[in-house]
């Protein structure tokens, strides 16, 4: 049933830009969003809830990166660093590590500004860089941050990370062991991210980003403050990642440096490439498809192969190979993503 819904959602998302009236578009989006609230109630298995929660966190991450890469055109290959910063903020402030037990909600609120600050710290030295050079510097930043967390053993628990993080509670009621509250929270974060990104895109700042993406020199010629616009993109993009990191850490109950490596950054960039950079519905679909591929479609395919062909394989082991094939195929046949930006 979930798969049927997912298929329907993907078809709707592909078609949505062709809908003539914005009102109809809005109705379809709302109609599609309602089952998202109900799905975990219909399917009570914890595995599904867990999967949905993770998928939503990844959607929020992809929406954040989309502001940097999709809107402003700044290729950031170290985006997982901000995810790590958010997660470690929760890990260090809400665990027995320092005996600090700051409430989840406070950290969730602070993680955005904190990650935004780090976004600007990374952004500042890269302002003059473009394209490949920018990608290399951000790649470095993405490598440095988990490394720092790994080496600061006294504060971060080193390679083992920090286990036993506080379980959040909502008005005195503990989240318990279920992923369901995290799913709803992540969904709220996604909704907020879509709302903010959609409004930013139409704003003056958003137009400045698109101008910088299309031609940075021309943007400067036109008198656009490219420095401020680029820093804002890094900061806002990072803040989503920071919040997602807090959710991720609280849900998992532990943080460790290997959770935020280069693969995570690559995975999120792949989601954008697959879905279509700069296009919000494309980004959502791209991240859903890749998360589902990893946690639902490949295990199902394993089972299918075992029952039908009597072959025992673990396709999940090959997921990066499969991403690679998908990306190459996308570049060949649909370079602007599943859902290309609307051509006028």
């Amino acid at each position: 049933m979930i798969y049927a819904y997912a298929a329907l959602a993907i078809v709707a998302a592909v078609l949505i830009d062709r809908f003539p009236s914005p009102r109809l578009r809005r109705i379809v989006i709302v109609a599609l969003a309602i089952p998202l609230l109900l799905v975990p109630l219909i399917d009570p298995s914890e595995a599904t809830r867990n999967l949905l929660a993770d998928a939503s966190i990844y959607v929020a991450l992809a929406l954040g990166l989309n502001i940097v890469v999709g809107f402003a055109g700044l290729l950031d290959l170290g985006y997982a660093a901000f995810f790590a910063i958010g997660a470690y903020a929760y890990g260090m402030l809400a665990s027995p590590q320092f005996g600090l037990h700051i409430p989840f909600w406070v950290i969730l609120l602070l993680a955005g500004p904190l990650a935004a600050l780090f976004g600007m710290i990374l952004g500042a030295p890269t302002l003059r860089l473009r394209g490949d050079y920018l990608a290399i510097v951000t790649l470095g930043f993405g490598e440095i941050v988990p490394q720092i967390f790994q080496n600061l053993t006294a504060y971060t628990g080193g390679p083992n990370g920090i286990p036993g993080l506080d379980v959040p509670s909502f008005f005195g009621k503990s989240f318990g062991a279920s992923a369901l509250p995290f799913y709803y929270l992540a969904l709220a974060l996604v909704a907020l991210a879509i709302f903010i990104a959609g409004n930013l895109r139409a704003s003056r700042l958003g137009r400045a980003w698109l101008a910088i993406r299309d031609d940075e020199l021309a943007a400067k010629h036109a008198g656009i403050d490219t420095t401020r616009a680029k820093l804002a993109a890094f900061a806002i993009g990072a803040s989503f990642s920071g919040c997602a990191g807090v959710l991720f850490a609280a849900k998992l109950g532990l943080v460790s440096p290997d959770l935020f490596g280069f693969q995570v950054s690559v995975l999120i960039v792949s989601m954008l490439v697959l879905g279509g950079m700069g296009n919000l519905s494309g980004v959502v679909i791209g991240s859903l498809v890749l998360t589902m591929l990893n946690s639902a479609i490949l295990p199902q395919a394993n089972m299918l192969a075992a029952t039908l062909l009597h072959v025992h394989v673990d396709l999940s082991q090959y997921h990066f190979a499969i991403y690679g094939v998908i990306l190459v195929a996308m570049m060949l046949w649909r370079p602007s993503g599943l859902i290309a930006r609307r051509a006028r």
């Binding site: 003056r204 137009r207 400045a208 299309d214 031609d215 943007a219 010629h221 036109a222 008198g223 006028r344």
Partner: peptide, 29 residues
């Protein structure tokens, strides 16, 4: 912002944006 407008060599428009959007970016601030 001080009042110096620059029409660059080769025009350098934002090719994928509309005329109106291009013009609007001229007084972005």
């Amino acid at each position: 912002r001080l009042g110096i407008g620059h029409v660059p060599e080769g025009r350098r428009l934002f090719a994928r944006m509309t005329v109106r959007e291009n013009l609007a970016l001229g007084c972005w601030d």
